[in-house]
Structure formats: C-alpha cells, structure tokens
C-alpha cells in the first residue's frame, strides 16, 4: 500500500503495510538512521521525532496514521547541526554511547519551541519519556539550559 509522507520538508511516497510503524519506515525505507529503535513499546523515546511540531514516538505511530502531518527527524532539525539544542549538546559533550541522544534532542527541541526558558520541573516533565541508559541526564539538563540561555551548573567540568 502506498502512503505519502511529508518528512523533513519533502514529500515522499512509500509502499509498505499500513501497520508498519513510522520508525521502521524512516529507518529501513527512507534510510534516515538518526531515529533509533530501543524498545518498540514507547518506553525509551530513542525514536522521538516531531509530528506537527510536537514530540512523538515513531515506534507507536503506524505509517497509515502519519500521512497528514509534517514529520521532522533529527536529520531535519537543522541542515548542519546548528539548532541551539544540537550546539549545546556538542559544547557540553553530552553523549556517552549517543544512541538515545537524537531522541533526547528532539524532545528538548520540542520543549523549547513552546517553552523558551523551561524550569527544572518543566524539563523533567518534557524529558520523562526519554531514557538514557548511560545516565547522561545531568548533561542533558545542562544542554537544555544552555540552549535556552540559562546558567549551567558546571560543578563538574564538561565540554571544552
């Protein structure tokens, strides 16, 4: 069955089963590998993308339900890694293994789009769907603060 999607500003057509999760369409059909598979049940958030500007877990969206709204993946967040969240992540050397970080960045970017200067509590709520198994949560929080122009806790050194 053919479906037309709007991914990163481009209209693309895919011929896949309607129940195939958007995650696998992005990765295995459109070869966009930034969106990751971690659990397949909406628990880890490694597959977080933006659908109509809001953070969504691509493993929980059958492709047949994804045709109406623009989809943005980590590859489309900026052309060159210049989104403030991406820059902050680099500056603060946030990742360890890095596998979850595209999802973390997409959740953080969606938060900042609606809440330019989030509080710690707002960060906690927005990021609760994203697991970092390596435990880089302190740096993720700092990255969000750096990206939103708020002071960063540098008790323990990070980044160059």
């Amino acid at each position: 069955m053919a479906y037309t999607l709007n991914v990163n500003g481009k209209s693309v057509s895919v011929d896949v089963p309607g129940d195939m999760p958007l995650l696998w369409v992005l990765r295995d059909v459109l070869h966009l590998y930034g969106t990751k598979y971690g659990c397949g049940v909406g628990q880890c958030g490694a597959c977080t993308v933006h659908i109509r500007g809001r953070a969504a877990k691509a493993c929980q969206v059958p492709v047949q339900n994804a045709t109406a709204a623009p989809i943005v993946t980590i590859e489309g967040l900026s052309a060159d890694g210049s989104h403030p969240v991406q820059k902050a992540w680099e500056e603060l050397d946030v990742p360890q293994c890095g596998y979850c970080q595209a999802g973390q960045i997409m959740s953080a970017a969606a938060l900042l789009a609606t809440t330019p200067k989030p509080t710690d509590a707002e960060i906690d709520t927005a990021m609760n769907g994203n697991i970092c198994r390596c435990g880089t949560y302190l740096r993720i929080r700092d990255g969000i603060k750096r990206a939103s122009g708020q002071p960063v806790n540098m008790t323990t050194g990070r980044g160059e």
Binding site: Y33, E75, D80, G81, D93, P95, A102
Partner: peptide
C-alpha cells in the same frame, strides 16, 4: 563522534 550523533 558527537557531531555525528547530534546530527543523526
């Protein structure tokens, strides 16, 4: 690899 990671 951080730049590659944050750009997917």
């Amino acid at each position: 690899d951080v730049h590659k990671i944050v750009t997917g």
